[in-house]
């Protein structure tokens, strides 16, 4: 299969620079550890936030970390989209008889983020062991769907970012608001924020759908109806549709204007 070959090629490429690869992985993990340490330090001092304990929050972190790392590892081609435009690689992809999306998934696989995936999973497991939840089938399903929804939503954000880079190549810092902002924001229960922030990150960018809402369901807290919390990950995945349409429109526009 073509994708398998892409993966093989990326592994080969990465192994050519072992020091670099090792350092990048180390750096990735360090950033991650520093963030978790920061959160831990806060809880060391304050015990709970809005009724959520450190481990409740840690599961939020686990979900966010894992899903971000998975998406950034495998959909890196979308992240690099502005570079693909600048270096003319996109032109190259366009003269090949394979769909652009398939090629973008193959264009770059960032193995240095693998460490983050593993750590994200470890954190999730630690949190799951320590939180106070009576597990049942439905709860497990909701938790799994939260992870899937996370990947879908983050991927959708990447699509938007990539789409925007067709119009303006300088605007990448702006994407930080959405992407990194929603990451940082989602480490903590969303109801602690200003109501406008909460609304934006529930209805416009459905970050709440893969962490705050499903976790409220697991923990049985919050003021939102439980059934809505349970299906929220499924609703969040719908976000992909408009984002995909936007990206495809941008690509068509790229073919209209070139570089």
């Amino acid at each position: 299969m073509l994708y398998k070959k892409y993966i093989k090629m990326h592994i080969k490429s990465s192994l050519e620079y072992k020091t670099n690869m090792f350092l990048l992985s180390f750096a990735q993990i360090l950033v991650f550890v520093a963030e978790v340490l920061g959160i831990w330090l806060l809880f060391q001092r304050f015990d709970t936030v809005a009724g959520w304990t450190f481990y409740d929050s840690l599961l939020l972190v686990g979900i966010v970390m894992t899903t971000f790392a998975v998406t950034e590892t495998f959909a890196r081609g979308y992240d690099e989209f502005p570079n693909l435009i600048k270096t003319g690689t996109l032109d190259r992809l366009l003269v090949r008889p394979v769909s652009i999306h398939y090629q973008l998934f193959g264009a770059k696989i960032e193995f240095s983020k693998l460490g983050r995936i593993i750590l994200g999973i470890i954190l999730s497991v630690i949190a799951i062991i320590n939180i106070n939840v009576e597990w049942n089938m439905l709860k497990i399903l909701v938790l799994i769907s939260a992870y899937v929804c996370g990947c879908v939503v983050i991927f959708s954000l990447m699509l938007v970012a990539a789409g925007i880079s067709v119009y303006t190549i300088e605007n990448l810092e702006f994407i930080n608001i959405i992407t990194n902002g929603s990451k940082e924001l989602a480490y903590y229960p969303l109801n602690i924020y200003n109501k406008w922030l909460t609304r934006i990150f529930t209805f416009i960018i459905p970050v709440a759908c893969f962490n705050y809402l499903p976790l409220s369901f697991l923990l049985g807290t919050g003021s939102i109806p439980m059934w809505l919390c349970a299906i929220s990950p499924l609703l969040g995945m719908l976000f992909l549709i408009p984002c995909l349409i936007f990206f495809n429109c941008s690509l068509r526009r790229y073919q209209g204007t070139g570089t």
Partner: peptide, 16 residues
């Protein structure tokens, strides 16, 4: 290390 990205991230994270 010849890896600007890796080292910068490490130094910046510690400092942050």
């Amino acid at each position: 290390t010849l890896s600007p990205k890796g080292t910068t991230t490490i130094v910046a994270t510690i400092a942050n």
